[in-house]
């Protein structure tokens, strides 16, 4: 049952995706699709991907993480990837992979804090532009 290899939880406004172990490409692709479906269905504005149990990120998995963040962004959702092991970070850089466009945080708490700040910032911006519109109108 591939569908349950990567659990996706919704906590408040945040979708939390936890990659539990080394997974095959098909499961990664399926996870990407399920995450986007969940964003649409739940209207979650934040996405947190926990890879602390992932013992390896190769160029394929790295690209999938970048892609998920980019797609979530198009769907108006912010992504933070948390828990990259030091050895994985070293290897990613040596491999020449920078996880472009992906925000990272040390752990889940840190990631949630960053996402909350971003949401607050976003609300401020909305409020500001609403006021501007009201003033202009």
């Amino acid at each position: 049952m591939n569908a349950f290899k990567v659990p996706i939880l919704k906590v408040g406004d945040v979708l939390i995706v936890s990659i539990q172990s080394d997974i095959d490409d098909r499961t990664v692709i399926e996870m990407q699709q399920r995450v986007l479906e969940q964003i649409e269905r739940t209207g979650a504005r934040s996405l947190l991907i926990d890879i602390s149990l992932l013992e390896m990120v190769d160029s394929f998995t790295g690209r999938m993480l970048s892609d998920i963040a980019a797609m979530a962004s198009i769907m108006d959702s912010e992504t933070v990837v948390v828990g990259i092991q030091p050895a994985v970070a070293i290897t990613l850089v040596e491999l020449g992979l920078e996880l472009k466009g992906v925000s990272t945080a040390l752990d889940v708490d840190d990631g949630l804090r960053i996402l909350k700040e971003r949401m607050r910032e976003r609300q401020r911006r909305h409020l500001y532009s609403a006021k501007e519109n009201a003033a202009a109108g």
Partner: peptide, 16 residues
């Protein structure tokens, strides 16, 4: 730990 990840990642790239 670091050399393990390096080796496993290299193997994954080449097998892919």
């Amino acid at each position: 730990a670091t050399d393990l990840v390096r080796l496993v990642t290299a193997a994954s790239e080449l097998a892919r």
